[in-house]
């Protein structure tokens, strides 16, 4: 049922996007207002990660650095107070239950990039008592830092540890302030937003752009011609904790 609706919307959206054209971002205003609902409904942002490519350049942290910089992510030395949007987690921790005594050497103890999965069925959204976090039509699990009351229920609900809380004032802990993007205040939860502010300008997420190995591919799942779709067609991919029914939209090529 869902697939039928999706396919239909995909086709409808494609034509809308084609009409709107790619070069009209400047004039997006008028056209955008009309095309936005259709295009929004036919967009499902997702990411495909190739961990093998990611491992090529040892110790590379380009994506993490780029993300932290454009989003004013604070640097807390104390691990308990850490704020993380995108980070590297050992394979066994990122994919709990997938490890075995003979886990391939290519994977064992190897760092895997993790961040918000922008689930199709996000538990964090379900539990939020103020709608400070919600799922947009294009699938992005968004945060409203103005509304968050800091109850941290979403952190208890997220099975991926993707959310961070500002235990202390983050401002003094930001290495280089970028005035284009706000900082956060103490007492609110934050996480990756798929760079929605960059998507709005027609740019790719900062981590994708920064990766020297092109290990991160971002795109629209509802567009059958997109690179993410072709990667998913051609490779076997896994997702984190699929058994929980959250439908993560970050895919890992194995």
């Amino acid at each position: 049922m869902t697939i039928h609706r999706r396919t239909f919307l995909g086709v409808a959206g494609l034509s809308a996007v084609a009409l709107a054209g790619k070069s009209t971002i400047g004039a997006l205003a008028k056209a955008g207002e009309e095309a936005a609902p259709a295009a929004g409904a036919a967009t499902r942002w997702a990411m495909v990660i190739d961990p093998q490519r990611c491992l090529r350049k040892e110790g590379c942290k380009d994506c993490i650095g780029a993300c932290d910089k454009v989003h004013n992510v604070p640097l807390f030395k104390d691990k308990d107070h850490e704020v993380k949007w995108i980070w590297k987690e050992p394979f066994e921790n990122a994919f709990t239950g997938e490890e075995n005594p003979y886990t391939a050497e290519a994977l064992k103890d190897k760092p895997v990039l993790v961040f918000c999965n922008h689930c199709d069925n996000p538990p964090c959204v379900r539990v939020c008592p103020t709608k400070a976090t919600w799922k947009r039509e294009d699938g992005i699990v968004m945060m409203d830092w103005h509304r968050c009351i800091g109850c941290r229920y979403c952190m208890a609900a997220c099975p991926y540890g993707s959310r961070s809380f500002n235990w202390l004032d983050p401002r003094p802990r930001i290495p280089a302030l970028d005035p284009e993007f706000p900082t956060r205040t103490k007492g609110v939860v934050e996480k990756c937003t798929f760079c929605e502010e960059r998507l709005a300008k027609g740019e790719q997420p900062a981590c994708v752009e920064a990766c020297p190995e092109k290990a991160l591919v971002f795109g629209n799942l509802d567009d059958p011609a997109s690179e993410v779709r072709s990667l998913l067609r051609e490779h076997f991919t896994i997702r984190r904790k699929p058994e929980l029914g959250t439908q993560p939209e970050i895919y890992y090529i194995v």
Binding site: R126, V127, C128, P129, T130, K131, A132, R147, C148, I149, G150, C151, R152, Y153, F165, N166, T185, K186, G187, V188, V189
Partner: peptide, 26 residues
């Protein structure tokens, strides 16, 4: 106990301002 656990206690009325029946906290 709930109140002192809030990160932004001044905004606690948001729970009533934006009622969310899907949330058990509501």
């Amino acid at each position: 106990f709930i109140f002192v656990d809030m990160g932004q206690p001044m905004r606690i009325l948001n729970v009533m301002l934006h009622p969310t029946p899907g949330s058990m906290m509501f």
